[in-house]
Design a protein around this nucleic acid. Structure first.
Lengths: 203, 203
DNA sequence: GATGAGGGATGACAAATGTCATCGAGGGGC
DNA sequence: GCCCCTCGATGACATTTGTCATCCCTCATC
């Protein structure tokens, strides 16, 4: 009996190509393709899928939240995360959300089908290099509000803009940014944003 | 006689999946897969390819430069650019570099093979929405140095950092950033960076 | 030969940013 | 109860930015 697979990735070309690639495997059957995470849980239930392959970066519901939704709606369905960016924070958060596997998009294509099979068997699949990095990197040092403010700062607005969007006073925003800069080691607001993004501490 | 195709994309999973997808077409033969743009021209010559499919964002030699190299080394080989980001500036620059087609990664997968065929026939393939945007967006208003300085600023360093890396005085850096902010309409250095990136004016 | 645009620089000034000390309220832990 | 941390805020202060006027040099172009 073949593995019933749901694929969610916002890039149609990639999604279609992955479906084609995996559909070639005799023991894998692609039962649904989604362009965002919103309908993932529903699709898994509807098609009684065995494995859900989710991209982390998606419009609407992001992959991590989608993973949690899938796990809740169908505990027997395993989740395999696929992502462009090997950010340590993503891995940790994905695992906490109930994912069984985590691969980056520059792993060889032939390993993908194997990853799907292992996940289906209940094994965990994690890129070894990324796992190591994730251990050393540790959790986000940012408090919730610091993260929010830093994210609000990530599109380059002024302190006044951020204060308005976060409903905070300007001074408070500056304090949070200062704390975030100190914790990330960035010497500029923009540098702090970059560091936090690279580590997967935002989203 | 089948179309001989070279694929270059830095994400191995995507590259493999695209190769698998296109390899299914009876009239297309994938003769080489590359992980960066450096060897693209050589691979095209070696395998006497008819079409080269290049990603814009690649480590080492970027897709636009690779396209120019391919066109120079093998004028009979057509170039089809594939990119994650539909940035107007990319399209214009790719066309100037001699590309015949330009598709974004969220076009439907089945159109891809068709795009390869059209490019091979000497037709041009361009995402219509993107083409329209590209016309309205216009060329980069930034002068060469302004672009360089803005790019140096894009990782969030201070003026002093940028001045050092660009071998300029701090005052000059501030002048260029000021000009870049005025031309892009950004109110902050960071905002100017984001706007320029979104339009494909950096790289 | 004049004009203009771009590259590079300086200096001055106003506004924004980053830092610090401090304060109060609330929420767990011991 | 008390301590510690986070959240939220304020005010003061030193730096850093962003803006502007002005200068010089070079290279096209008219």
């Amino acid at each position: 009996m073949s593995i019933r697979l749901v694929i969610a990735d916002d890039q149609a070309l990639v999604r279609g190509a992955l479906a084609a690639l995996l559909g070639l495997e005799p023991d894998i059957e692609v039962v649904a393709e989604l362009g965002d995470g919103t309908g993932a849980a529903a699709a898994v239930v509807e098609h009684s899928a065995d494995v859900a392959m989710l991209d982390v970066e998606m419009p609407g519901l992001d992959g991590i939240s989608a993973a949690a939704a899938v796990r809740q709606a169908a505990p027997s369905c395993r989740v395999l995360m696929v992502t462009t960016f090997g950010r340590p924070g993503y891995l940790k958060r994905a695992m906490q959300a109930g994912a069984s596997g985590f691969v980056v998009k520059d792993t060889p294509a032939r390993q993908l089908a194997e990853a799907v099979r292992r996940v289906h068997q209940g094994l965990r699949v994690v890129d070894p290099a990324l796992a190591a990095e994730s251990l050393t990197a540790g959790d986000s040092p940012l408090t919730e509000r610091e993260g929010e403010v830093l994210k609000a700062a990530s599109d380059g607005g002024t302190v006044a803009d951020i204060a308005k969007s976060a409903m905070l006073s300007e001074g408070t925003v500056r304090n949070y940014l200062s704390a975030a800069m100190s914790k990330t080691g960035g010497r500029t607001r923009a540098e702090a944003v970059r560091i936090a993004e690279d580590n997967g501490w935002l989203l």
